[in-house]
């Protein structure tokens, strides 16, 4: 299970920022997760309580914003949603594309005191 290990990193990173900013408590953590990133939101939610136990994030809520996977067709330049189109350009059906977004895994913000 990959999500727990990665979330432990996230918690460390957030704890550092929290300490630098004299944060006393955190109500919510907001992450942005691309559709092509290997982190699966459903599993992240499941292991979140274990990852935050005993840290400044204990008791906080996790919010995940999805970033849609977008590709740009190398043939015709059309920009399309990769997951929806199953990797083939809806305009010319070519399968060669450059990924514009969707790989991200970003700590966006915390709601805190």
């Amino acid at each position: 299970m990959h999500e727990l290990g990665v979330l432990i990193h996230v918690v460390e990173q957030v704890s550092e920022v929290a300490a630098e900013n004299q944060v006393e408590s955190i109500a919510k953590l907001v992450l942005q997760v691309g559709e092509l990133c290997s982190m699966i939101p459903k599993y992240m939610e499941k292991v979140y309580p274990a990852a935050i136990e005993g840290t400044i994030l204990e008791g906080s809520e996790l919010e995940i914003e999805r970033i849609v996977a977008q590709g740009k067709c190398r043939q015709c330049g059309h920009v399309f949603g990769l997951i929806e189109a199953k990797g083939a350009c809806p305009s010319c059906s070519d399968r060669q594309f450059d990924i514009l977004q969707g790989r991200e895994f970003i700590i966006k913000e915390i709601v805190c005191q």
């Binding site: 990173q13 957030v14 920022v17 991200e104 895994f105 970003i106 700590i107 966006k108 805190c112």
Partner: peptide
């Protein structure tokens, strides 16, 4: 809200 915007 404290913005972090750091890639993991």
């Amino acid at each position: 809200i404290l913005e972090i915007k750091e890639s993991v």
